[in-house]
Amino acid sequence: MTIATAANMQFTMDSIVEMFEAKHGIQCKVIASSSGVLTTQIQNGAPYDVFVSANMRYPNELIKNGYGEEAEIYAYGRLAVIYSKGKKYSTIEELLLDPNVKRIAIADERTAPYGIAAREFLRKSGLEEKIKDKLIIGESVGQVNQYIQINSVDAAFTSYSFVQKFMGKHQTLEVNQGRFSKIEQGVIALKEGMKSNPKETKLFLKFLNSEDCRGILTYFGYYVKK
């Protein structure tokens, strides 16, 4: 079966899928991109069975257009700022306003939910105008990660789930949950999946809600419903 997954879930999904495959013996193919890009592909006939989004807006849009019937929240995302180089900062404001921090990557708010969250945080904290010229927009958190990984930027707003991956060469500050609207990550069984692989699709959705899977999600830094 084919699972389209939001870029922020990429590594988490690798672990989830590994466990799912071991448990049920179902081969999965994972396709990662920004939620907006995947939504466009689905609306243009991409043969995905399940869509693991980074928000509820895109799954709801798909339901409205008849590509699925029901979406549910599987996790709440956390927003983090990752930065390189030696200097340590105690607050995000201090980091972003430092003149030595010349480029800050965020995901495109038109297609990436983590980009929306980052924008909202910047707007509400009054930082947006001040650092406007420093912003570099990435396609998704995937590209944002790539920019910070090869140090093309000095700081990057990304999903907290990547923090482990960046430990060592980079440092992290988490954006307080109260400073942006909740990132409600939704999953939806697609019409295509219910038609060609109904059994597998349902099993996967069930698995996403299982204790095992919640363990993985928590490990990677997502909040799950109690």
Partner: peptide
């Protein structure tokens, strides 16, 4: 323009 098309499409 080529990237703008892609972005507009992905923003629905």
């Amino acid at each position: 323009a080529s990237v703008a098309i892609y972005d507009e499409m992905n923003s629905l």
